[in-house]
Simulated scan of single mutants.
Amino acid sequence: MYDETKPLVFNQLNLVSKSNSLVEARYKLGTMEQKVIAAIASNISPDDKDFQTYTFSIKEFKELIGSKSKNIYHEIDKVMTKLMQPFNFINAEGKPTKIAWLSKATYNVGEGTVTVRFDPDLKPFFLFLNEKFTRYKLGNIIHLRRSYSIRIYELLKSYEGLAERTFTLEELRSKLGVENKYPHWINFRQRVLDPAKEELEEKTDIMFTYEPIKKGRSIEKVKFIIKPNPKNKTLMTNIVEQLEKVLENEDVLEIQEKGKELGLALPKKLVQEWLKYGKENVMELMESIQYRGDIENKIGYISSVLRKKAESEEKMADVDQVQKKIREVIHYFTPRQGARKVDLLPEWLVKSTAVDIFAKDMTPEEAEQLWEEKRDEIMEEINNRRRKVTT
């Protein structure tokens, strides 16, 4: 239903999927408009049978794209107005069509949010994509500063597996929406191609070089050589780290809000310390003391309980590790299936092997001490198993 809305999730690891016919189409959008379109597309599920209506926070979008604008609300208003206006869309077959990107764009006054929905005419370009489509992580384009860089990224990404792609200069100008700009090759190269080349190598998962192809004295075509970006691993690591920071901030805010219910003003640094013990543990503990009147210092109580619980879990983990080592020793001396007769083992023989096994994860002194503590338990279990074979 059109009245139902979903929150637009800004996750740089979300996948943007577009049909190649849309990637190849001729249209002109600014940098901000392209990022809004990509962010919405990245929330579409492969199972969606229709477009959803989404609401997003302008502040969160600003943080996602790293904007330093002091008037982001005005800019978003201009973006939404432009995306609602029909434009001359020239598809891959060269057929002119008037189409709008959005069928709905509501600025929620006082809430700092915008509600949006793709125009239904765009369904063939975003839904039910089984073949001939381009897919990439939102994080690859969300920090690009130039609209040309985004368009070139998508055009090359669709040919990534083929390693190279050639456009006529006229065709390339048209796809980038600069038919009447930078008429001289040197200006086009310096203002469009070189900056895009630098940005893609710095911020995306692909990189390219290009070769101008002449006809006579004029540049007729441009050949792009597309390569995977060796920096990609670092880039994606940075994206994941940024995402983790966003999620951590959300957790901090949620715990601070819960603190207000308990009458507590919780500093961010304190909450970050608590989060080391697990958000679920913190929230559960806060819930359990919300209506208790016998705790004077709730902050101190929460910190103490979280710390003690962590120490207890750490001790349990150590115990589990010790038991694992003991089972390894016992298993080492357990007779194989089918053995007919085995002898009971002397303590000195078992000790030598047990101490070697224990010493893999502790000092020789600690291994010796563990053997002394668990010797009787180990020997009894080993020889009981061996007795079962002989009887």
Rank of each mutant, 00 (worst) to 15 (best):
P120S: 07
V23C: 12
I226H: 11
P212M: 06
I40R: 04
E244A: 02
K203G: 00
T391K: 14
E170C: 06
V109R: 14
T204E: 04
A265P: 01
T390C: 14
P228L: 03
K82S: 11
A39C: 08
L193W: 06
E24R: 04
T31S: 13
V240W: 09
G161H: 07
R327I: 00
Q290M: 15
L345H: 07
E257W: 01
N43Y: 02
Y182N: 02
K123G: 05
Y73M: 04
K59L: 10
A25P: 07
R336S: 15
R375I: 03
E365L: 14
E170M: 14
S218E: 14
L8I: 04
D376G: 01
L102A: 09
E63T: 06
E366T: 04
K137I: 00
F224W: 09
I299N: 05
A310C: 08
Y2F: 07
V305S: 06
E313S: 15
V252N: 00
K315T: 09
V282I: 02
K341N: 09
P124A: 03
N384H: 08
E254W: 00
V282K: 04
L129Y: 05
A310W: 13
E314R: 14
Q369L: 15
R327A: 05
I90G: 02
W371C: 07
T209M: 08
F118T: 05
E170R: 04
E75F: 03
K374W: 10
K260N: 05
E250Y: 00
D376M: 06
F188K: 03
G30I: 05
F118Y: 07
Y148N: 12
T209H: 10
I58W: 06
P183L: 03
V246H: 00
V79P: 06
E244V: 00
Y54A: 06
T391E: 15
A163I: 08
L83I: 02
Q85D: 15
E154I: 09
K98V: 00
K351S: 15
G263K: 06
F358Q: 13
D251M: 00
M32W: 05
F61E: 03
P183I: 02
G293L: 13
E154N: 10
D205T: 01
V222C: 11
T204M: 01
E220R: 15
S218Q: 12
R387N: 13
F128Q: 14
V342E: 11
I150A: 13
S42H: 08
M1I: 10
S103R: 11
K351Q: 15
L64S: 05
I152R: 05
V342S: 12
F224Q: 10
L306W: 10
